[in-house]
Design a binder for these strands. Structure first.
Lengths: 140, 140
DNA sequence: GTTGCATCCTATAGTCACTGTAGGAGCAAG
DNA sequence: CTTGCTCCTACAGTGACTATAGGATGCAAC
């Protein structure tokens, strides 16, 4: 099981930068692995799996705090997956919310650009739209 | 023109926190205003307009660096609004890109949750999907 | 055996856009 | 005069890293 993978090799296999791996170790997401005589970190296949899990979850936008819980749960396969669903569900809702906000934003930006006559700043619709916050829900 | 607005009043009028206003001053987005005898900042209607502009642009996701350029341009109304369009266009593209990514993400999260049987962690599809990065474009 | 280079080590500071806290001073009302 | 709010500066903390400095190690070529 101990294939003795260096941090650089782990980095390549999981697609996570070396410095980020060390950062994850300090943050408690990755365990402190055994060391070689020359004080270098020695990883194995289990570490590759764990780091890939972390990478994927981070790409999906899960926060490190969520990750801590998720990793803890996946380490104890006997427990209920209710908390996992809860975290994923909460995250899904946040993603949907963000999509809605960005879509509204896209509309506003497109409209700004479409109505701009591309002349002088004085008549620029973009600047005007940014200065005018009458229709952006600014509570005075 | 000098209505002598306190930082708290400016905060309420523009919808930006007091601490954030001071931060913007340090960051060069807001000018250092005149002070009262007791060393308090004294703002006027122009400051309210400028801060509202900043707030709106920030809400639309423009970065402070973009804001610096945008503010500089809006201060010189005679110039061409080409750079403004360029910044807004670049930002619109970034927003569209983000929407696309989040939509894909939403699909993956929904699928994960839908296929989970809500039993033990051992059979949890969510954990499994996170551990398996075969279909997430992970190079190697 | 030594030279040279890639990789590794720790520790610290910087990023962005703020937010929070500590420890005071100013000011208006009761 | 005291209470309580607003204001002041200065600095530390957030999240999730990234970058840099200044070495030590390991391995292959010469």
């Amino acid at each position: 099981m101990a294939g003795d993978i260096s941090i650089g090799e782990l980095s390549r296999r999981a697609g996570v930068k070396v410095t980020t791996i060390r950062f994850y170790e300090g943050a408690g997401l990755m365990p402190a692995p055994p060391r070689s005589e020359g004080d270098r970190r020695l990883y194995d296949a289990g570490h590759v799996r764990r780091l890939s899990f972390i990478r994927h979850a981070r790409e999906l936008g899960f926060e490190m705090e969520d990750l801590r819980t998720l990793l803890e749960l996946s380490d104890r396969p006997g427990g209920s997956c209710g908390p996992v669903d809860e975290i994923a569900g909460r995250h899904l809702a946040a993603v949907e919310d963000k999509i809605a906000k960005l879509t509204a934003l896209k509309g506003e930006l497109s409209r700004m650009l479409a109505t701009c006559s591309h002349g002088a700043v004085a008549e620029c619709r973009v600047i005007e739209a940014l200065a005018d916050h009458s229709h952006c829900g600014g509570e005075h």
